[in-house]
């Protein structure tokens, strides 16, 4: 055996120096397969029982199409709202000092940490007709939020906020002030500097945060169902339709819907990976 640390040793030499390659590889693969891969494969294999035509028929029922429109539409809108306000919040947290900043910074993650069922009943109660916020919106302004598609939007905004803020924050912190100094010395005003110097650096991270919030929102269940009211063709989200199918023992229907959502998730996962490597290239930082 050659000296494992010598400069000429092949890359695989580390495998010989440190123990545990076979043990950890075997354990990781078995555990991953049992918990994640086999259950995921079960969904796809179960759908194989349907012909392609049947599959299309199942997933294009009008009530389901209405749920796709709501789930994807509300999720896109919620992610867009979060992209705007999440950018402002991340900017405030990084650039400015203000009272309570540390507390705000810590609590930005609350939507991740708070169990979705708790968020769900809380939002439903807040925005119900006699709730703290419902009284203002419904009573004073005449905008009904709870038990409408707007309620779905509110829940999805809640759940998506940390994704945008936490993706942007490290990028903003690393931003070199020299770029902005150069822009200022060349006569640019703050808005021009932001628009032409800062924003282009932030764009990949902003899109990543948007995509993460969007992907999470489409699959979200617990925080949405209480405030949505679940009126057929009006405020039913797609994950709820899977539950409904299951409760009717329509396993094939539930599974076909799950395949649609899983394929969407995988596409989003690829898109997010691509966006993250774009962010890394643009900022020289790995997410």
């Amino acid at each position: 055996m050659s000296l494992p640390l010598s400069a000429t040793a092949p890359r695989s030499s580390a495998r010989r120096v440190l123990p545990g390659f076979r043990l950890t590889l075997g354990y990781t693969l078995v555990y991953l397969s049992l918990i994640v891969l086999i259950p995921t494969a079960a969904v796809f294999l179960r759908t194989m029982e349907l012909s392609f035509g049947q599959f299309i028929d199942v997933i294009s029922a009008p009530r389901l199409v209405a749920s796709y429109r709501l789930s994807f539409g509300a999720s896109l809108l919620a992610a867009a709202i979060n992209a705007v306000f999440g950018l402002l919040l991340a900017w405030s947290l990084v650039r400015y000092s203000f009272p309570g900043k540390k507390l705000v910074d810590a609590l930005v993650d609350l939507p991740f940490a708070l169990p979705t069922a708790v968020a769900g009943i809380s939002l439903a109660t807040l925005y119900a007709k006699n709730g703290w916020l419902g009284r203002i919106f419904e009573g004073a302004l005449g905008i009904k939020i709870a038990y409408t598609p707007l309620g779905v939007l509110v829940a999805l905004v809640f759940i998506g906020l940390p994704f945008v803020v936490r993706t942007l924050q490290p990028i903003l912190e690393d931003l070199d002030s020299e770029l902005e100094e150069a822009a200022a010395s060349l006569g640019a005003n703050r808005w021009q500097t932001f628009r032409h110097v800062v924003l282009p650096v932030l764009t990949p991270a902003l899109l990543t945060g948007f995509a993460l919030a969007f992907a999470r929102a489409v699959g979200e269940y617990g925080s949405v169902i209480f405030i949505a009211g679940n009126i057929p063709r009006v405020s039913e989200i797609t994950p709820l339709m899977i539950i409904t199918r299951l409760e009717q023992f329509d396993y094939t229907g539930a599974t076909a819907l799950a395949v649609v959502m899983l394929v969407f998730s995988f596409v989003m996962l690829l898109a997010i990976n691509a966006l993250q490597s774009w962010t890394a290239r643009r900022t020289g930082r790995t997410l």
């Binding site: 891969l37 259950p39 995921t40 699959g219 994950p239 799950a258 998730s265």
Partner: peptide, 30 residues
């Protein structure tokens, strides 16, 4: 360690993050 397919493994470990909770339940029912 360095081995082939490492990046794929990392992606697969992340997979549960992108699956809707409802579908997770469905998987085990199936």
């Amino acid at each position: 360690f360095d081995f082939r397919g490492k990046q794929l493994l990392v992606t697969l470990i992340d997979l549960p993050f992108s699956v809707s909770p409802v579908i997770v339940g469905l998987m085990f029912v199936l």
